[in-house]
């Protein structure tokens, strides 16, 4: 991911406080673009919440059940 922290750092901030560690003020921000609504993403999301074993990297994967 392209680090664009400088460009977007004012959009969402970690609060300044003595109990916040130094590293938390150095988290990275990337632009992720618009919501992806492609068929492939919809297909993946369909199974995400259903508790099947997920594996989309392998064609003959061990998805147990497809509605």
């Amino acid at each position: 991911m392209k680090d664009e922290t400088e460009k977007y750092k004012d959009l969402l901030k970690i609060p300044e406080h003595n109990n916040v560690s130094f590293d938390l003020h150095h988290i990275s921000i990337s632009y992720q673009g618009k919501k992806v609504t492609s068929d492939k993403v919809k297909y993946m999301q369909k199974y995400r919440g259903k508790g099947f074993i997920l594996d989309f990297y392998k064609p003959n994967s061990n998805i147990l059940f497809i509605k």
């Binding site: 991911m1 664009e4 977007y8 300044e16 921000i29 632009y31």
Partner: peptide, 23 residues
């Protein structure tokens, strides 16, 4: 959207606005 995530970061200068005490 923007995506916020944490990586190891290189520090080459210490900003003046860093608090004297942090966690």
């Amino acid at each position: 959207f923007i995506f916020l995530y944490q990586m190891t970061k290189l520090i080459t200068e210490l900003d003046d606005d860093v608090p004297k005490i942090f966690a």
